[in-house]
Design a protein around this nucleic acid. Sequence first.
DNA 1: ATGGTTGTTACACAA
Length: 268
Amino acid sequence: MMLRLATWNVNSVRLRLDQILRFVDQTRPHVLCLQEIKCQAHEFPADAFAAVGLKHLAVHGQKGWHGVALASSLPIEATPPLDICREGHARTVSARIGGLEIHNLYAPAGGDVPDPRDNPKFAHKLDFFDRLTAEMARRDPQSPLVLCGDLNIAPGAHDVWSHVQMSRVVSHTPVEVERMTRLKASLGFVDLLRQARPEPEKVFTWWSYRAADFRASNRGLRLDHIWASPGLAQGGWRAAGEVVEVHDAVRAWDRPSDHAPVTADFAI
DNA sequence: ATGGTTGTTACACAA
């Protein structure tokens, strides 16, 4: 059996509904992890998702901002959201599908100033990663687990359009990269997109709205991630590593999200 | 060195 998992920061699920349905029709994910749905759970367009086969939902929403959801064609066992956001934002949703533990995350962006003493949003971002790292360190590395979502950090020099310029900009500062390195080490996570497309190839999943032509300027960042526990294989799962994709054509659609969807295939 | 855009909300703010 093959399981295709997609992660996508949609920047409003209601405004982007037609594009989401188009993407599902084209790509047929079994599990769709969404971030920035920007609505409350009762406002989520559940009927439209069910109509394209994604009838099992776990939604963690709030009014206006943030919000995450997990939609699946396979039955899901909802598990409590990770309690790692000190501000109480809806930034995590988790579920178990066929023995696979899935955590869908929307990490804080962190504001403009990369200093936790001057900028509470940056402090919150670091705290979010510290708590997430502590949480993952309690998991068994040998059990099948996927962590995905918009982590709002581009870790590598080839995950940003300019390593020199971005090293002073929130999303790629040394302190954030260090937090992501520690998170990765907590369980020995495998970065599936980088495994499929090794450095030094540049890989981006986000391009700012503030460019007339995102392909021409190509000042992108790799903010969206799909990570697998080392025990995915021991749990009977296998990351079909050659099938990990950034659907950047979606970023070129009319009135798009600033993030492109990313998919990974797993075999069981 | 600066500004550029978008979405939700309510009469700014976050990204």
